[in-house]
Design a protein around this nucleic acid. Sequence first.
DNA 1: GACCAGGCACATC
DNA 2: GATGTGCATGGT
Length: 228
Amino acid sequence: MRQLQAKRIYDALFAKFGPQKWWPGDSPWEVAVGALLTQNTNWRNVEKAIANLKSGELLDPKLIMDSENSLIEEAIRPSGYFRVKTQRLRNLCVWWLANVDSKNRFNTHPDDLQYWRDSLLSVKGIGKESADSILLYSFNLPSFVIDTYTKRIMARHFGTPPMMKYDELRLIFMKDLPRDPLIFNEFHALFVRLAKELCRKNECLPDCPLRKLSKSPHLSPVYYTHFA
DNA sequence: GACCAGGCACATC
DNA sequence: GATGTGCATGGT
């Protein structure tokens, strides 16, 4: 990855697309809920679910814990997997109420990234991507998020092994970049932005469903120029 | 109708 | 450790 120069990729993407201002959400809790609900799910469906939670006065860990499953299920139904996600949401509520204070700060181990990552990963329903998203976007801790877009783009365009482990790829970025939450934040969002841009321009990766006619490189010359 | 979307847990080998 | 499966809605 030394030769990949993550920071240069970041600079090129930032120059191309500008700040993405992630994560969409009005509060750390809403961000965390979004991270959970978006598991294998289109973000537009998640927006509907969150809107339902808001209008149902359910966007709060205590209120969720006091509600019937059926109420939560109906609210988050648009985001799919609504039964398993209802249970996962409850698990996240328990964790949140035990560890996060009213000012959205951890009540112990301040800034201990490893501690809180392990803590989140112990919650059933929170895997690595969800944990890193919550750490980064709810708590502004420098935990790099790897998602399918990141994995695909890195494998297709920057030569990382397609089956590279989550933690392995994550550590490559963590070691190669300044440990700045703002950069991690924008970088992940820019990867998603790039992936969607490539799809829009029909320059998707070979396994992308939206790829139709393209025989050309899946990254347009402008990107190659930027990354050269 | 098929296919996928900002995953995860669990079973099985 | 690798591979397969269930979970479920809504857009293209």
